[in-house]
């Protein structure tokens, strides 16, 4: 415990149970800094729960989570979170710029109001995701892909060291998906760590260099080339997917 860990995220024995049924069980996971990692698994595998438990949005039954060696309370400043799009009422009276600025509320603390500086930072983040022209647009007028990008901008504005995204590509058009992946890869190139709950197995080898296969327990975790194998996928999904030999990465 005294060696300096370059791991962005270390999860030990993490367990979350609802009514005595485990959502995730005894999860051990290490995410090295600078990794672009996908978390994949069947429905109900606990992928979202894993992230929420790490971010203390859901109560942990057991286990520890360390971000750059610190517990979440101390590391909050360095963690960015992009929740699922469906968790929000998109008819709320606010604009894309406003939502992006909400990413900075945590930094302002109690009683301070966002001002010109926050506005400028938010506009910058919107530029990064290609939404600067929609800054004043009411969010209900945005398409699904645009909403997702605004959510991403809200996380980017925090300038975190590690980002968690929960199903960012769900119900998003191909162009937006490509745009978001490009941004995530740029983040990785800047040395940031990115962890993504992902639902599309096809794109894992293309987008991510690291992958974790989860089905309540961790089946395998590591660099995509070694980990994303037919064998591991069978163990994760049971008989529920048909897997074509010779189509996966490098084989």
């Amino acid at each position: 415990m005294t060696t300096t860990n370059t791991a962005a995220l270390i999860i030990d024995d993490l367990t979350v149970a609802y009514n005595s049924k485990p959502a995730i069980w005894d999860v051990d996971l290490t995410v090295p800094e600078g990794a672009l990692m996908a978390i994949v698994g069947p429905n109900g595998a606990g992928k979202s729960t894993l992230i929420k438990a790490a971010l203390k949005l859901v109560r942990r039954s057991a286990g520890t989570v360390r971000f750059f060696g610190q517990p979440y309370e101390k590391a909050r400043r360095f963690v960015g979170y992009v929740p699922q799009r469906g968790s929000v009422d998109w008819d709320f009276p606010t604009s894309a710029l406003d939502v992006t600025m909400m990413g900075l509320y945590g930094r302002l603390g109690w009683f301070r109001r966002p001002g010109k500086q926050e506005r400028a930072l938010a506009l910058q983040a919107l530029e990064q995701v290609g939404m600067a022209d929609f800054a004043d647009r009411q969010i209900s007028q945005l398409s699904g892909g645009q909403q997702q990008r605004v959510f991403l901008a809200r996380a980017l504005v925090q300038e975190a060291r590690i980002y968690f995204l929960d199903e960012p590509f769900a119900a998003v058009d191909a162009v937006t998906e490509r745009a978001i992946v490009t941004i995530l890869q740029a983040l990785r190139d800047q040395g940031k760590t990115v962890v993504v709950v992902h639902h599309d197995l096809q794109t894992v080898p293309d987008y991510f260099d690291w992958v974790t296969l989860l089905n309540v327990e961790v089946v395998a975790s590591g660099p995509t080339a070694e980990t994303f194998t037919a064998e591991n996928l069978r163990r994760t999904y049971g008989g529920r997917i048909s897997y074509l030999e010779g189509v996966d990465s490098g084989q």
């Binding site: 971010l55 949005l57 909400m102 509320y105």
Partner: peptide, 22 residues
């Protein structure tokens, strides 16, 4: 008025608010 931004945030996206330490 004092808690304006906090109320706005928890009404719009409570989960995000929680993750940000509110």
């Amino acid at each position: 008025a004092l808690f304006w931004k906090e109320f706005k945030l928890i009404t719009f996206d409570a989960e995000f608010a929680g993750a940000n330490g509110f």
